[in-house]
């Protein structure tokens, strides 16, 4: 039974067959040695790009289908009925399945806040949404393993719940742009009228839209991954980001926060870093920093909240992901 699971995992998730196929292509088709530098980079690039695009299409399709049942209006209604820590937890969980891209953070923020949801709940949602989504979990399981994927989710959710709660405690309601509270609340919700065919076509549209948006990031990410994999000397990477260097997590954070990329583009970089001996926590911190905080979404949020609240938000999330990095580095022997 366990063998069957391992086989399924290797073939479907890790796509061992694809790796073997690309090895054949690189060796026999291109006449390169797959363990040489050039051959290795070419193999990493082709294999990772194809794997990520296959996973991306399948994952986005199925997840979008589920998401079509949870439009933001419904999420808001569900959250409005809950209170306290339970509301935060639910917000963090719903954040993983509500359709979200950094471009919709403002409408969501305004929509939630004007409907009277507490800041604590809204921020739990805003933290978890880009950080943890179903796609990233399965990708993490594909590239690393299931225990790392689950640990990532649990820790991401804890960060969202605690971060949101903390922001709520600070009573920063006055730090929200005044017009937000005056915005009307439209409870228009098409959910009841959507047919299965429309959900399927919505899911198909999402795949095309997201693929069109992220393909360049994926190519760049895999390219950087391939370069780290075979060209950047291990000494250099371990001097900067090695597991025994206390500053590695901080370097990963500072490098990752201003970067703007999707989880799909970030994972191959994290993968290559871990193979080069970088601590798991450092790699995860880098991924979280890239996906959770980005310059474009900060600039957008700045239009609806005042600077102190924005600073608190960035501060809490940054501190959180740094802590997560150190915790994971200290305990990574449990996961690999």
């Amino acid at each position: 039974m366990q063998d069957v699971f391992i086989w399924l995992n290797d073939q479907l998730l890790r796509m061992q067959w694809l790796s073997d196929l690309v090895t054949l292509l690189v060796r026999d088709g291109m006449g390169l040695d797959p363990v040489s530098r050039v051959g290795g980079s070419v193999h990493f690039f082709i294999y990772d790009v194809i794997k990520i695009f296959i996973l991306l299409s399948v994952l986005i399709f199925s997840i979008s289908y589920v998401q079509s049942y949870f439009p933001p209006e419904r999420t808001r209604r569900i959250l409005g009925q809950r209170q306290g820590l339970w509301a935060n937890t639910l917000a963090a969980l719903l954040g993983t399945i509500t359709p979200f891209c950094s471009c919709s953070s403002i409408p969501l923020f305004i929509g939630f806040t004007s409907a009277g949801l507490p800041l604590a709940v809204t921020f739990s949602f805003l933290i978890s949404s880009p950080l943890v989504d179903l796609a990233s979990v399965i990708l993490l399981a594909s590239i690393f393993n299931w225990s790392i994927a689950l640990a990532y989710v649990v820790i991401g959710l804890v960060l969202a719940v605690l971060g949101g709660t903390l922001i709520g405690r600070l009573q920063l309601e006055g730090q929200v742009a005044a017009f937000v509270y005056q915005s009307p609340v439209s409870d228009h919700d098409n959910d009841g009228t959507i047919s299965r065919r429309e959900r399927l076509s919505y899911a198909g549209d999402q795949v095309r839209e997201i693929a069109a948006r992220v393909w360049l990031y994926v190519l760049i990410g895999v390219g950087i991954g391939a370069a780290i994999h075979n060209w950047i000397p291990e000494d250099f990477i371990s001097a900067l980001l090695g597991q025994d260097k206390w500053w590695s997590v901080l370097v990963a954070t500072v490098a990752g926060v201003p970067m703007y990329a999707d989880i799909f583009g970030t994972l191959p970089i994290a993968e290559a870093l871990v193979e080069k001996g970088v601590g798991l926590g450092t790699a995860l911190t880098f991924m979280m920093a890239v996906t959770a905080l980005s310059l474009p979404s900060m600039i957008m949020l700045k239009r609806v909240v005042k600077l102190p609240l924005l600073a608190v938000f960035i501060g809490i999330v940054t501190t959180g992901i740094i802590l997560i990095g150190y915790i994971f580095n200290a305990t990574s022997h449990l996961f690999i």
Partner: peptide
């Protein structure tokens, strides 16, 4: 967002929201 909608595209007829997200 000032129309109170959270999912786009939205359709507004004479300032009244009639559809969102579809």
């Amino acid at each position: 967002a000032s129309y109170g909608i959270m999912s786009t595209p939205g359709l507004v007829i004479d300032e009244k929201v009639v559809s969102t997200g579809r």
